[in-house]
Amino acid sequence: MAQRQQYQPLGHIVVTGGSGFLGNHIVALLHSRNAYTKLTVLDLKKPASPISGVNYIDTCDLTNFEALLSTFESLKADAVVHTASPNHTMGNKDLMYKVNVEGTRNVVNACQETGVKALVHTSTASLVHDTKSDLINADESYPLIMGKDQPEYYTITKAQAEIHVLASNRTPEYPKFLTCALRPSAMFGEGDVQLIPPGLSAYYKGQTKVQIGQNNNLFDFTEITNVAHAHHLALAALLATREREDKGGSVPLDTERVDGEAFFITNDSPVYFFDFARSVWAAAGDETKNEQVWTLSKDIGLLIATLMELVFWLFRLGKPNLTRQQVQYTCMTRYFNIDKAKTRLGYEPVVTMQEGIRKGVKDALYRGVVRGQPMELKGKKFD
């Protein structure tokens, strides 16, 4: 596996949001590869399991530029991985804008003013999606969906952040500051709270015998270690470009460039939507056979979801188990072409879909974060 290879230390790396789902995996991966001389995490929360030798700063507010700049001046970092972002399910628009847009601008400015060489920004594959249309082999030439055509405010703020990050690459004032953006699709794995745990809840509620749609829609899910691996490759590419140019070497050709570019990241193996769900359920012990599954049409699913949303809204019961948005995602095709990442970053997945599902299910049950799971499974080690 790629983790066993020898990697060149990249200097002092700072990871914003390094105590979060993706950030923590990036920190752990870089640590396992001994890929830095120093590693610092900036976050507003402590990590669940601190890694020995990593410098954690849990009082850093990205929306406070003066404080952030002071922190960057003391760190003297070589490169930054910017993953910090609020949970998109919270629905707090003010927080989304302050962190995703203003916070990202502050990170960029702090990098530029303190001589940081490179910035890898975590974006999202949702930037090119209107949440309704099918995406078939979508690549980086697809336009960003913003404004009235983008119903997800979180995605709008992530688009604004990416645009600013890429526009900050090689500016006249900071011509040696290099940036790029990675766009992962539907991340899952150990530490996951938004994909595998809700999926497992359906299993423990006895809902595995119901399917919405014909399950003929391909969807891209991405194991979290692969996303972390892509960030490492992007860091290395930007810093190698900077080092080469500092020594008088040539600027990369347009067909080779990483700086100023965005890259979709997936497991490079789109699966039918319910095949992924059934793999998750099977890893937890589900034995439902295909002939036992009751298939509902998308229209019927939308009707049921609409009625449930109305009832839950009228009686203030919170969010129902099935929403219209969930039905849309369940029935849509959404997968991406990652040739650009493969050719320019040298990216290929290091964890397979099945291995990621197996590890993610074990981890979710061990943490006890699955609604409806038997409590005796919490804290239990699985073979």
Rank of each mutant, 00 (worst) to 15 (best):
Q3T: 13
Q8G: 11
H12V: 05
I13E: 06
G18Q: 02
G18W: 05
S19F: 00
S19G: 03
I26Y: 05
I26W: 00
I26P: 07
N34C: 05
L39F: 05
L44P: 02
I57D: 08
N64E: 13
A67P: 11
A67H: 13
H82G: 07
T89K: 09
M96H: 12
N106R: 08
G115Q: 06
L119T: 08
H121R: 03
T124N: 06
T124L: 11
V128C: 10
S141F: 07
G147N: 04
P151W: 11
E152V: 14
E152C: 13
T157S: 15
T157A: 11
N169I: 00
R170V: 07
Y174D: 01
T179A: 05
R183T: 07
S185W: 08
A186D: 08
F188R: 01
G191L: 00
P198R: 03
L200K: 03
S201K: 04
G206H: 08
N215T: 08
D220P: 05
T222H: 04
T225M: 10
A230Q: 09
H231T: 09
G248P: 01
S250A: 12
D254F: 06
E256S: 12
V271C: 09
D275Y: 14
E287I: 02
S297P: 12
T306L: 10
E309Q: 07
Y335S: 14
K340V: 09
A341P: 09
Y347M: 11
Y347L: 11
E348V: 11
E355K: 05
G360V: 04
A364V: 03
L365Y: 06
V369Y: 07
P374F: 11
P374D: 13
F382M: 14
